[in-house]
Every structure is written in structure tokens, then in C-alpha cells.
């Protein structure tokens, strides 16, 4: 009995030695997200505007129905999204939109600090997603 007690105490004492800490002091030190991390979305820009061709695959596949797209045509007759909006409060970060996109126009970044003060701030419009 005593032996096991001492064994337990020695395990905790061993961890008391410096160099055992696994804490990352978060706001000061930030963990690097992995390459595949599914964080905040980003619309990929091409030339003077977004790559997106407003094909509606992403709102179709989205399980949370958080993507709003409205298609329009520019002066050359090329389709583009007049509205592209993601509601981050509904988004479940499943990555289906990225998987579905046929032109690789949307990707997910390593950005994970998505807290905000106002409801409206969670609606990411095209301009914000292009940043």
C-alpha cells in the first residue's frame, strides 16, 4: 500500500521538474494551424476580382445552409457573384464548400479567432472574404 502511494507521489514529483509544462501561453503565443485547417473561409482572387463563377455548388452542398450567393453578369457576359455571403454563426466548418467548388475559388484559412461583439460582424460579405 505504502509502496503504491510513494510511487504515485514520485510520479507527480517528477512532473514538478522544469521542462514538463505543455502550456502554450495563448494570447502571447499562438499555435500555428495546420495546412489543412478548416478555419475562416477566403475567396480566392483572380486578376481584378474573385475567381468565383457563381455556380451555386457551395450553397447546394452546404449542410448548414450558411452560404448566400446571387449571380450576376459583368459587361463581358461573365458570370460572377453579386452577393456572396457566409454566416459564420451557422457555419459548421465542414469544408464541403471547398470540396465542391469546381474552380477552386473558395478555401479555408488557418484563421481561428472568430469572436466578435455584434451579430452583424459574423456575416462575412464578399469584400471581407476576399481579404
Amino acid at each position: 500500500m505504502i509502496k503504491e502511494f510513494i510511487q504515485g507521489l514520485s510520479i507527480t514529483a517528477k512532473h514538478l521538474l522544469p521542462g514538463n509544462s505543455t502550456t502554450v501561453e495563448y494570447p502571447k503565443v499562438k499555435l500555428e494551424a495546420s495546412e489543412r485547417f478548416r478555419g475562416l473561409h477566403r475567396l480566392v482572387p483572380a486578376h481584378n476580382r474573385e475567381k468565383c463563377v457563381a455556380c451555386y455548388l457551395c450553397p447546394t452542398v452546404c449542410p448548414a445552409k450558411c452560404i448566400t450567393v446571387e449571380a450576376g453578369e459583368d459587361e463581358n457576359g461573365v458570370k460572377y457573384p453579386t452577393v456572396y455571403q457566409i454566416d459564420m454563426l451557422r457555419c459548421i466548418f465542414c469544408g464541403y464548400c471547398v470540396e465542391a467548388c469546381p474552380v477552386e475559388a473558395i478555401e479555408m484559412t488557418g484563421e481561428y479567432e472568430l469572436a466578435n461583439y455584434k451579430r452583424e460582424d459574423f456575416c462575412f460579405t464578399k469584400e471581407r472574404l476576399l481579404k
Partner: peptide
């Protein structure tokens, strides 16, 4: 102390 023992700071 408990923090250190539990690999925290």
C-alpha cells in the same frame, strides 16, 4: 505547484 505537477504553468 499543482500546475507544474500537472504539466501546466
Amino acid at each position: 505547484i499543482i500546475g507544474r505537477m500537472q504539466t501546466r504553468l
